[in-house]
Design a protein around this nucleic acid. Sequence first.
DNA 1: TTGAAAGCGCTAACAA
DNA 2: TTGTTAGCGCTTTCAA
Lengths: 341, 341
Amino acid sequence: MPGIDDVARLAGVSTATVSRALSGNGPVSQKTKARVVQAASDLGYVVSSDASSLASGRTRNIGAVVPHLNRWFFTSVIEGAERVLLRSGYDLTLYNLSGDGEERRRVFEHNLLRNRVDAVFTVSLELAEDELSRLLAIGKPVVGVGGPLPGVSTLTIDDVAVARLATDHLVSLGHRRIAHIGGSHEFDLDFHIPTSRRLGYEESLREAGLPVDERLHRASDFTIPGGYDAAKQLLGTPHERPTAIFAASDEMAIGAILAARDLGLQVPGDVSIIGIDDHPLAEFFGLSTVAQHPVGQGERAAELLLAALDRSRTSAPGRPQPSGHIAPADLIVRSSTAAHP
Amino acid sequence: MPGIDDVARLAGVSTATVSRALSGNGPVSQKTKARVVQAASDLGYVVSSDASSLASGRTRNIGAVVPHLNRWFFTSVIEGAERVLLRSGYDLTLYNLSGDGEERRRVFEHNLLRNRVDAVFTVSLELAEDELSRLLAIGKPVVGVGGPLPGVSTLTIDDVAVARLATDHLVSLGHRRIAHIGGSHEFDLDFHIPTSRRLGYEESLREAGLPVDERLHRASDFTIPGGYDAAKQLLGTPHERPTAIFAASDEMAIGAILAARDLGLQVPGDVSIIGIDDHPLAEFFGLSTVAQHPVGQGERAAELLLAALDRSRTSAPGRPQPSGHIAPADLIVRSSTAAHP
DNA sequence: TTGAAAGCGCTAACAA
DNA sequence: TTGTTAGCGCTTTCAA
């Protein structure tokens, strides 16, 4: 492994000049810079991130904290963020909290504090008070994606509005008995999403002058099997069967489609079904949905963090002002929703 | 942020003793250690990973290189690896190569070389010669999971044996016309898995004295829609319809189940279907499969790397001997396979 | 525009 | 068992 002085020697300059030439910080003449770059390339020199971090105080690494890895939304956000970060020369260090509480504690009390990252984003994560204060105490930019973090900049779709949009779509098609498959309370702990989406659903019904019927609501777990079970209950009741279902996620909506098929019901002939997400499988199942573009959310989160880091380099640090950013979401109508006969 | 000398001062010892007490390296008396730990805890001291890395040459960070994030296998491997790593105080830095070639180049020529990681594992990744040599040149432990890396320790199921097992299961049920949905050639580039699985399938047929019929093979893309399309072709042919399908992945097998349903065929009454993976949805669809436990593979990969790092700390470095580790896989029979009538 | 030199915050000889 | 001290490989003043 060649070091910076190998490069300096070969280029016939000082190590300071090499550092300036390669990092772009500080003035270097065109000619010198070219010589340095050439020398570095010849030697296969790559800066040591530890030494650079220690000397500069910047790690060029971002921490991503997620509650699970095996869910499409989380990995999509990470994918988007990493794409932007890699392009800017940053790495992404992943903290997956899906293990037990002990691991979660360690991440917040140790891993995130040992100066390995310049900034952090969390995905759909509700943080305990001490976790949050510890995060903020290190004085680094933090962005919360898809979940509310008090005192922190956040980026999320407007869950209430999105749920209204989906329900409005069904209402506008003439449906009157519209069921909702939401999240169970335990999911609410880390998300708050189920509650918001249910709220939007009820708002839409009320505005349309429709009753909010407790029997048309089922709590589930955001998975295909969970949606299947919930829909079986909703659609199995002979006389009070809903003519439309709004599921709080595409995976549950797909479960509902499969349940309808198993009950001999046509989608959308007998029942219209809509979800939220625009999951990769939505198109295959012809599922109408409200797309929430998680890859774009990840890109956006990364850009927000990079901008904050850039700002703190130029101006005084000072706690960055927390701000709320709304991510776009659009209705996509496919073949799972149709007019009520 | 308190530093190591704050702790030393509070505990009334030297910084060297603090380092020894907190890292566990070197002799420290019980009493002193307790005092140091208490002082560190009082101050909320956490070691700076940069400074520690620079001084010790160890980063306590592992690199994970994956070709995609939105596939169950990859994220499961990462999940398993991270669990083990976190427990050992390691972080995991993620390099997702799903972007364009430019990003891939940067990762291998820059990010992985700048000394941010102590070791690297790759998942289902075929590396170009220069990528591999660069990786090996940094002299760090490397493990390839689910993909063949020449000159590197690897961990993978025996794809040929697994495919044989799945096919043997169908043969033993009396099936004679057994189709195969494999991967297309482009997938082979990064995997070699499609070829191996097809080989196992053909071996099984040959051993059973069954002909290998080109018309019973379809190439697909490891997704549910891909499996659906392939199965429609296979099952749509009226007179030569196979009575069983072996798909090279559960997702394709699930697509096949949906295709069979759409064609009015009973599974397993009219056609038996088996996959490979034990995907989370396999149980829901009653899919028989060969489980390959990717979380366990990730855990194992992390353990192999940690062991290699441990070894290099005690004995001379020297290129670790590349070795091949076979991950376990077991047949799981559910309701998608049955005896040929 | 460049170079000299003082750290960044630790770890690991080495000495005591 | 503990302390002293010399780096680890860079970045960034400061002076030229």
